[in-house]
Amino acid sequence: MKTTLTVNGEAHEVTHDPRRSLLDTLRDDLRLTGTKKGCDHGQCGACTVLLNGERVNSCLCLTAMHDGDEVTTIEGIGSPERLSALQKAFVEKDGYQCGFCTPGQIMSATAMLREISEGAPSYVSDDLEVPKLTDTEMAERMSGNLCRCSAYPLIREAIAMASEVSQ
């Protein structure tokens, strides 16, 4: 079957198995392998992408369900030569070790910063109207992204640093 997707601003028509996940379409059909497969069950977050601006686990999305949708992957955030503020902060703070979960952490953090700036509260928000970017908020909101190397405190330092830069 065929599905049309806009990925990182570019339109693609892909012919695919009906069982194909968005993750496998990105990786194997479009060769955007920055998005990683860590569990294929929505449990690790390594495959996080933005779908119409919202973060999702792409392994839990069937490609066939997303005709006409817009996807942003890590490749759409920055390249080694032109890193985003968040990507630079991850390098500076050593917010990774093996790097496998990193694209997912960065995609998730990209969306998370916007969610907070738009006032979306979380379970740990002290103020439901105006949530702040505290470490506790970040820890809560990033817990869908596992890092077995356990760079967690440094990942959150990197997010905080990038957030300060952008303000």
Binding site: T33, G34, L83, Q87, F90
Partner: peptide, 23 residues
């Protein structure tokens, strides 16, 4: 010194080639 990893830019941009990423 706490030099940044030289492989960092590849890792944060998704261009570091792990095994299953190789076309």
């Amino acid at each position: 010194t706490g030099m940044d990893r030289p492989d960092g830019p590849q890792k944060v941009s998704g261009t570091a080639p792990y095994t299953a990423d190789n076309p």
